[in-house]
């Protein structure tokens, strides 16, 4: 077939896409070098905004929180999701059990489907100091001393967010790993058990390597999601009692629209975009390189 040029197909749309994104990012970058009161004139002030945020303790706390949030948004859901997927894959055999799998999948994945603004509101409602469910439950079970003002004090608020984030993300990892397990070569597994391999050995040496692409992708998406987390924080704790649960992203948006300083918000988001861009590019590059190497070797 004659090699036709597909430039006419590709270029307009891709150009619009890249131009739009690049323009917004560059504009954001430029804003980070200006003092802009939101209307009227903007004044070029060089790196002053960056100076301001680097000396703002709230900024560093927010960054710390964002780093921390990677744990409940990515690490824990991945590990738990993996274990859960393997366990469900192993245990739900047989006609009736197999029928249950879509329901189990649905139950865990549900938090990902409902808008985060709504689930965040729901959790805020559940954890509310006076009438919140958790405290009521604790009271009913005679564990009243364990009840806290879940949203009103910094440490309980962080704990609450941790739980909510795991609740949100587990389903994503679980569903992907479960599908990945279905891809596995059953003959290898059976051969291994015939050879006397224990469950742990089969998990570690067969299931885990076979799931490598899924693990990589899930980690990539969830880690980036954790670093840039915004919605769970905003909708559950509104940034926490006096900003004690702010993430980098919520700090930035607060700077934009909370009347603090727009240039500061741009500075934070530029940094965030830069860090994530670098992290993603590195991971994507490493991944495609290992793919290419494998192709060469095989």
């Amino acid at each position: 077939m004659k090699r036709e040029s597909f430039n006419g197909f590709l270029l307009p749309s891709f150009f619009i896409l890249s131009a739009f994104v690049a323009t917004m990012l560059i504009w954001n970058l430029i804003l980070s070098f200006m003092r802009f009161p939101g209307f009227g004139n903007a004044k070029w002030i060089g790196l002053k905004n960056y100076e301001n945020i680097f000396t703002d303790q709230g900024f560093w706390e927010a960054c710390l929180h964002s780093l921390y949030y990677v744990i409940p948004m990515a690490i824990i859901p991945c590990i738990l999701g993996l274990v859960l997927a393997v366990a469900v894959f192993d245990a739900f055999k047989g006609y009736l059990s197999a029928k249950l799998v879509p329901w189990v999948r649905g139950g865990f994945y549900l938090p990902q489907v409902i808008p985060i603004a709504i689930t965040g509101t729901l959790w805020n409602w559940l954890l509310n100091g006076q009438q919140g469910v958790v405290n009521q439950l604790l009271k009913d079970w005679g564990l009243a001393p364990l009840s806290h003002d879940w949203l009103g004090r910094p440490v309980p608020a962080l704990m609450s967010l941790t739980v909510v984030m795991i609740w949100l993300q587990l389903g994503f990892a679980f569903v992907i790993f479960l599908a990945g397990l279905a891809r596995m070569d059953i003959a290898t597994i059976e051969a291994a058990s015939v050879d006397g391999a224990s469950w742990w050995q089969r998990f570690r040496y067969i299931a885990l390597p076979s799931l490598r692409p899924e693990i990589l992708v899930v980690l990539l998406i969830t880690v980036v999601g954790g670093l840039k987390v915004f919605a769970p924080v905003v909708y559950v704790t509104f940034g926490g009692p006096q900003g004690s649960t702010q993430s980098a992203a919520t700090f930035a948006v607060d700077a934009f629209f909370g009347g603090k300083y727009i240039g500061g918000g741009s500075a934070v988001t530029t940094l965030l975009a830069l860090i994530i861009g670098v992290v993603v590019s590195m991971i994507v590059y490493a991944f495609t390189r290992s793919n290419r190497e494998k192709k060469v070797l095989s």
């Binding site: 896409l17 994104v21 917004m24 990012l25 954001n28 915004f230 918000g265 988001t269 861009g277």
Partner: peptide
């Protein structure tokens, strides 16, 4: 193109938010 698309959709939307506003 594929790599660019991956980077774009993993970008924090907050970086575009104010300019879009």
């Amino acid at each position: 193109v594929l790599a660019t698309c991956v980077v774009i959709f993993l970008m924090p939307q907050e970086a575009f938010a104010y300019p879009i506003f």
